[in-house]
Nucleic acid binder design. Structure first.
Length: 722
RNA sequence: CCGCCUGUAGCUCAGCUGGAUAGAGCAACGGACUUCUAAUCCGUAGGUCAGAGGUUCGAGUCCUCUCAGGCGGGCCA
């Protein structure tokens, strides 16, 4: 915070001087951070371009301004350097003291931001590609909250799509030996296999993540189904049947009843009841959702509400959006041509789509069903508080509690089942509400969705604009990121571990990376990878601990390190670059990695432990500020202090650009500066009281800073020991 | 064909309102552990910032073109 303020004040003072001295107005004065400290702490290169206008040398302009500007009190001195840079040197001790005092609370804005992320199809286990979405989304949420914004986290559940239907097709129609193989058991009659599947659905709670959960069964069933479709026409026909049943709904049928019905149909050789199929699909979807929540809980990712597609369908969200679009003249019914009988939205008016061959987007098919984009428009309108009934009231969901959860620290795992926080889900009964909670109606909406969805996302945004809500369209932000792919080496590693072959061609294996695919079963499951990471971390801890000295809290430490490694891996790479996943790189704990950062924080804290034991001193306390000597901080200590002061600027910049590699770079800088100081500025053996006090103060500042950036912003736990 | 993204050290990547000497990590080589725990640090070596033009006092960063790779442009979701 201090640096932001000083920057703003200095810029304002400079602008005033420019006005007074040269009668010149500049409204966007930006002070940058020079490449090294000899060039000062802040710099303004603005005199250079003014040289031509004023017909004076840039140095002369800079000198005049340096002289005449009424600099804020934190500026110690000003120098002119190079061709005409204005370099500002801060009063180190003043800034240092301000930071040690602690910053004032950030202000709240009073308007709600919605972040939608995760959105995993509930038909298979989460893989590491999904983790990129969730981690980026979660960091965005954390950064927004850090700046004082109210944030609502939504995780959209597509419980009525073909993907869930495919798993149900597998359970009901996959040849028994294939289904049994997917379940990892001896082949049996279908009614017994159904029993087995239903037994694996698990209780109606969020379980602890493991690699034998229902999502892992789904992971096995799903590719077998999609592989059989092209080979077996009758089997392929089951997809439409099941999908139809799922869309019709189960009409409140009990799961036991549905299972009884399905098994009865097998024995009697009758066709399955549609309602029973729908009920099974619902159970499959929610069981997978609970598994996904458990996986994300390991990483400390939580949500506020789970909007369900089935509720969007049943509550007529699309019907309302359809009416609104028709009233606004945004869509039209085609009466001839290739889109005959479809309702389309014309994008021809929008410059972005003007060059397209066919600027019309179909929202309602000729058979009367709505496309995915149509549903998404309705959902987006609801998120923005723009979906209204004819009487002007908001068209809303019903809500009920899905689970409650607790988290013991900002970067600790989320624990479901009991706790203060409510995770809500939507329901189709609009009368149902949760006391004290409202959802949707956000001012700004971030949709964290991979870059391949850019086109439909633009269409959704354009629909909002065409409906006359230009500013809401501008505040509908697609947070796009590139996919996570696998290196050929990673593919071979998975094949080795799992003992199966994905049958990829030499051509595919020769590429730099291979795309993950749930349909083909190619991917690294998130839970599986977290397990591997934890095991590797445990090995590293044990190895470093020396002879048989295994700590009691080994699992806890290993978990912290694995989460740190993974979250940092996701945060440090810029979002519009494919993340080619490589086991060796992901399992590295040295260098520019999460554990390196964690280690620096742990190391700082250990100094205070040692100080306490040997000298009765610990962390620097605020009451000691007055005891700090008046001597200036040396350059290397100051570099660390200045980096600490930059946090607010960095977080704001990261949010503005949706680029968390900036935050990663900041925290890596901090850790690196600290590690260098660690060797040159010992505290415990230092006999000079003043020197020791100053170092304690700097390292305390650093430790606190790391705690905030790692835990609060990046969700990376700082363990007690490593 | 049109649109978006990417191309920076051997490898993986930072470099984000155009600024001063292009930075990390890994790999390589040479050093520092009876120490505030070496998951660390210090040093050496490694670059026509894909290529060519342009704008600018100044370009890895902005514009144009070319080349290479990726992804979109479904009455799939």
């Amino acid at each position: 915070m201090p640096l932001t303020t000083i920057r703003e004040r200095s810029a304002a003072a400079l602008a005033a001087a420019l006005q007074a001295e040269f009668d010149h107005t500049v409204d966007d004065i930006f002070l940058e951070i020079p490449p090294n400290r000899e060039m000062g702490d802040l710099a303004w290169p603005g005199a250079l371009p003014l040289a031509r206008i004023f017909k004076k040398s840039p140095r002369a302009i800079a000198e005049a301004l340096a002289e005449k500007t009424d600099w804020p009190e934190e500026i110690d001195r000003v120098e002119i350097a190079g061709p005409g840079f204005l370099n500002l040197f801060l009063k180190r001790s003043a800034i240092f003291r301000q930071l040690l005092e602690g910053s004032e609370k950030e202000y709240a804005t009073g308007s709600k931001t919605i972040v939608e992320h995760t959105n995993i199809n509930p038909n298979k286990a989460a893989h590491i590609g999904h983790l990129r979405n969730s981690v980026l989304g979660d960091i965005l949420v954390r950064c927004q909250r850090h700046l004082g914004h109210e944030v609502e986290v939504q995780n959209y559940i597509d419980d009525t799509g073909v993907q869930v239907a495919d798993v149900v097709v597998g359970i009901l129609y996959l040849p028994e030996p294939d289904l049994a193989a997917a379940l990892g058991i001896e082949t049996a009659r279908r009614d017994d296999l159904i029993d087995h599947v239903v037994g694996a659905l698990g209780p109606d709670q969020v379980p602890h993540a493991s690699t034998t959960d229902f999502d892992d069964l789904s992971w096995e069933i799903y590719p077998r189904v999609t592989n059989l479709y092209p080979e077996d026409e009758v089997f392929a026909g089951r997809r439409a049947e099941v999908l139809h049943a799922v869309e019709a709904g189960c009409d409140g049928m009990d799961l036991d009843e549905a299972v009884f019905s399905l098994k009865g149909s097998v024995i009697a050789g009758e066709i399955f009841s549609e309602r029973a199929i729908a009920r099974l699909a619902g159970a499959v979807a929610s069981s997978n959702v609970r598994c996904h929540l458990a996986t994300m809980a390991r990483l400390g990712v939580s949500y506020d509400v789970l909007p369900h597609e089935s509720d969007i369908l049943h509550l007529g969200f699309w019907a309302r959006a359809f009416e609104m679009l028709k009233e606004a003249g945004a869509i039209r019914l085609e009466s001839d041509g290739k889109n005959n009988g479809c309702w389309v939205m014309s994008l021809a008016e929008s410059p972005e789509f003007a060059d397209m061959e066919d600027p019309d987007k179909i929202l309602v098919r000729s058979n009367g069903t709505v496309t995915y984009t149509g549903k998404d428009i309705a959902y987006q309108l609801w998120k923005l508080g723009l979906l209204t009934d004819p009487d002007g009231a908001l068209h809303d969901f019903g809500y009920q509690s899905f689970a409650t959860w607790e988290q013991s620290g900002p970067a600790q795992p989320v624990r479901y089942i009991e706790g203060r926080h409510t995770l809500a889900r939507t329901t189709s009964n609009r009368v149902q509400t949760i006391a004290g909670h409202t959802f949707g109606n956000g001012r700004t909406v971030y949709n964290v969705i991979d870059v391949r969805q850019s086109y439909p996302q633009k269409v959704v945004k354009e629909a909002v604009r065409i409906l006359g809500h230009a500013s809401e369209a501008d505040r509908s932000i697609h947070f796009a990121y590139e996919m996570v792919a696998l290196t050929p080496a990673a593919i071979r590693e998975i094949e080795k571990r799992s003992g199966k072959s994905f049958g990829l061609s030499d051509e595919q294996m020769a590429k730099a990376f291979v795309e993950m695919s749930g349909r083909k079963g190619i991917g690294v499951k998130a839970d599986e990878f977290l397990d591997i990471l934890e095991a590797a971390a445990a090995d590293a801890i044990t190895e470093r601990a020396g002879d048989g000295d295994i700590p009691d809290d080994l699992p806890r430490r290993a978990r912290s390190i694995s989460v740190g490694a993974l979250r940092y891996l996701m945060a440090k790479q810029s979002r519009n670059r494919v993340l080619a996943f490589d086991f060796d790189e992901a399992l590295a704990f040295e260098g520019d990695t999460g554990p390196y950062l964690q280690y620096s924080a742990v190391r700082a804290n250990k100094i205070f432990d040692k100080l306490r034991a040997r000298r009765g001193e610990g962390r620097f306390e605020r009451t000691e500020i007055s005891s700090l000597a008046d001597t200036e901080l040396p350059d290397d200590l100051w570099a660390l202090v200045l980096e600490c002061a930059r946090r607010h600027d960095v977080v704001r910049q990261a949010i503005d650009n949706l680029e968390f590699s900036l935050l990663a770079g900041h925290v890596h800088n901090l850790a690196q500066l600290f590690h260098k100081l660690y060797h040159g500025h010992p505290i415990v053996p230092e006999e000079d009281e003043n020197l020791r006090l100053m170092r304690r103060a700097v390292f305390t500042l650093f430790a606190d800073e790391m705690k905030i950036v790692l835990e609060e912003l990046l969700g990376i736990p700082v363990p007690e020991e490593m």
